[in-house]
């Protein structure tokens, strides 16, 4: 028999959870429902009247080549960021895993970028690559490569990918390092005795064994690139030149606050909301699943 413990009814538990609920309501549920409502409205050019149009804003979006373009660009951007930052972290973690002396110093230094605000990180990269003043732009010019991300879309994209990846390297590094250090030393040693050199050990033993971490980070990084890179884009390119770096989050802001198309912008943010929910579900489903080699 289970024994139930009865508490006298009390308001205390409600009081204790109230702050959390109020915060969620005020800062999440209310704006989200506003966005949902807004996304079904159309305002006339002077903001004098609004009309309820059901899903017309959404239909308009999916007929809009610019929006479809931004979608594709975002997919590319987010895969590129995930790939660049994850491979970079993987290499760093691979080396850090082998370091015995001074490991803590390396780790601490590598974590720093994560603590930098996105806008500052962006500003840093802008300075380095400024076509007229930037040290790296200057260096590239010396090598005969003309750098001007303010004019060239491809270069602008490369720059925001670099900046966004750089900030994420620390995070990925930590996870990769932890995963590598969880592999029993003796398994690596057994491979060494079996004749595998460091590179072969990495690809045939370490990399397969940390694949659960790779999948996890892939989702995290994609979500990051989708939703968390507004600050960097805003600081580095403002979505330009000619929308070359306008990804979905940036377009929401641009269309809503610059273009003042509130209905369209709200519809875009609803779509983003659905995307983030889908990715989160995917992630939880994945984490809950048993790790399988």
């Amino acid at each position: 028999m289970l024994k139930r413990v009865h508490f006298p009814p009390s308001v205390l538990p409600y009081l204790l959870v109230a702050p959390q609920i109020i915060i969620t309501l005020v800062f999440f549920i209310w704006p989200a429902s506003q966005a949902l409502w807004q996304s079904m409205l159309v305002e006339d050019a002077f903001g004098l009247s609004t009309e309820f149009v059901w899903f017309e804003n959404f239909q308009a979006l999916f007929r809009d080549d610019q929006y479809i373009g931004a979608f594709k660009r975002t997919a590319f951007f987010s895969l590129a960021v995930a790939f660049v930052s994850m491979s970079f972290s993987l290499v760093l973690a691979g080396f850090a895993d082998r370091v015995v002396r001074g490991a803590i110093v390396y780790r601490t230094l590598l974590i720093w970028p994560y603590a930098i605000a996105p806008v500052l990180a962006g500003a840093l990269w802008v300075f380095m690559f400024n076509p007229t003043l930037g040290i790296l732009a200057y260096g590239l010019e010396m090598l005969g490569y003309e750098w001007n991300h303010q004019l060239r879309g491809g270069q602008a994209m490369a720059l925001v990918i670099m900046a966004a990846s750089w900030k994420q390297v620390a995070y990925n590094f930590l996870f990769y390092l932890a995963a590598m250090q969880a592999i029993p030393r003796s398994v690596i040693e057994a491979a060494a005795i079996d004749g595998a050199g460091p590179i072969r050990r990495f690809w045939t033993i370490i990399f397969p064994l940390i694949s659960p971490t790779t999948f996890f980070l892939l989702v995290i990084n994609a979500v990051y690139a989708f939703f968390d890179t507004f600050g960097i884009i805003h600081a580095v390119t403002q979505g330009g030149p000619a929308n070359a770096t306008t990804i979905l989050v940036y377009k929401v802001y641009n269309d809503g606050f610059v273009g003042l198309d509130l209905g369209g912008s709200a519809a875009q943010s609803v779509i983003l909301m659905i995307l983030v929910i889908a990715m989160t579900v995917l992630q939880f489903r994945y984490i809950e699943r048993k790790v399988e080699y």
Binding site: P184, S186, V187, E189, A190, A191, I205, L209, Y293
Partner: peptide, 8 residues
């Protein structure tokens, strides 16, 4: 090895 160290 004591823990066998098989490749899992």
């Amino acid at each position: 090895f004591q823990n066998y160290a098989l490749y899992p």
